Simulated scan of single mutants.
Amino acid sequence: MLLKLRALPFFAGLLALLAIVIMLRLGFWQLARAEQKQLRTQQLEQRLALQPLSLQDINRQSGDVADFPVQIIGTLDTNHILLWDNRVVNGQVGYEVLVPMTTDYGTVLVNLGWLKAPVRRDQLPELTLPKHRLTLDGKVVVPGHNPISREMTESGWPKRIQQPERHYIESLLQTELLPYLVQVDDTQQFGYLNNWRPVVMPAEKHVAYAVQWFGLALACLIITLVAIAKQRKKYGKSVSP
């Protein structure tokens, strides 16, 4: 029985050590994310200061092309409109309207902006888009991929999608797309809202979270050491002659 009592502080300390290690790892992860966000913000500022490039210029770039300002000229494929599902703005669920645009330098997916979803899920918004040749200014966006997201099987167009995954959209369109999309600047010309947020959480926020995790780790360490000291003192007295 005494052996079991003495083992309790050991196991409690082991669990506390594990928790401290996890909290420290989360803190350092937040610091790494802060550094990534800082670099992204610097890149964003540098590239947005440039004059708009053409799609031909973008296609000639080596490496990451995200955030470059671009001007595209072409025709929207209004027969194949994609609705990026579950996009929330100010607490309202809606869609971002993605449309293939045929240009002299390839077919590129353009984001025309966000609109509120109808009340009923079985209803789709009514969309009226221009069919003539357009000149649009925007920003190059390279979407990420969420392996957890699963697409729904829907017939007809417009078609809802869960994420702008290029290969999946190419299979729907039976058309090869450029490996990025263009976020249109002036979405109001189509009656939509510009919901482009290149940096959702600033670096300072990640640093603040890191400080919180390190603070929790320190507090856990102090509490554990105090608890172990009290337990040893208590059990030490219980076996004293």
Rank of each mutant, 00 (worst) to 15 (best):
A66S: 14
A66H: 07
D67C: 03
D67P: 09
D67F: 15
D67L: 11
D67G: 07
F68Y: 15
P69M: 06
V70R: 03
V70W: 09
V70L: 05
V70S: 11
Q71D: 02
Q71Y: 00
Q71F: 00
I72V: 15
I73V: 14
I73F: 04
I73H: 12
G74I: 03
T75V: 14
L76P: 06
T78D: 04
T78A: 14
T78I: 15
N79V: 06
I81T: 14
I81P: 01
L82D: 04
L83R: 09
W84S: 08
D85G: 05
D85M: 06
R87A: 11
V88D: 09
V88Y: 09
V88S: 09
V89A: 11
V89W: 12
N90C: 05
N90I: 06
N90S: 15
N90L: 14
Q92C: 03
Q92I: 08
Q92K: 15
Q92E: 15
V93I: 15
V93K: 13
V93N: 14
G94S: 06
G94P: 04
G94Q: 02
Y95L: 12
E96I: 07
E96Q: 13
E96H: 01
V97K: 03
V97H: 00
V97T: 12
V97Q: 01
L98S: 01
L98K: 00
L98D: 02
L98I: 13
V99H: 06
V99M: 04
P100W: 06
P100T: 08
T102D: 13
T102Y: 08
T102N: 08
T103K: 12
T103Q: 04
D104L: 10
D104V: 06
Y105I: 04
G106I: 01
G106N: 02
T107I: 06
V108D: 07
L109F: 11
L109V: 08
N111M: 06
L112I: 10
L112H: 02
G113R: 01
G113L: 02
G113F: 01
G113Y: 00
W114K: 02
W114N: 03
W114F: 02
L115R: 12
L115A: 05
L115P: 04
K116H: 09
K116Q: 15
A117D: 05
P118Q: 05
V119F: 11
R120I: 08
R120L: 13
R121I: 13
D122E: 13
D122N: 14
L124V: 08
L124R: 12
P125G: 07
E126T: 09
E126K: 06
E126A: 11
E126R: 13
L127H: 04
T128H: 12
T128L: 14
L129P: 03
K131V: 15
K131T: 15
K131W: 10
K131C: 11
H132S: 14
H132N: 12
H132Y: 12
L134F: 08
T135G: 10
T135H: 04
L136P: 00
D137K: 10
D137A: 13
G138E: 04
G138P: 05
G138N: 01
G138F: 00
K139G: 00
V140P: 04
V140N: 13
V140M: 01
V140E: 07
V141P: 00
V142N: 03
H145C: 02
H145I: 14
H145A: 01
H145F: 14
N146L: 09
N146F: 08
P147V: 14
I148N: 03
I148C: 00
I148V: 05
S149W: 05
S149H: 05
S149A: 15
R150K: 08
R150V: 10
R150W: 08
R150T: 11
R150C: 01
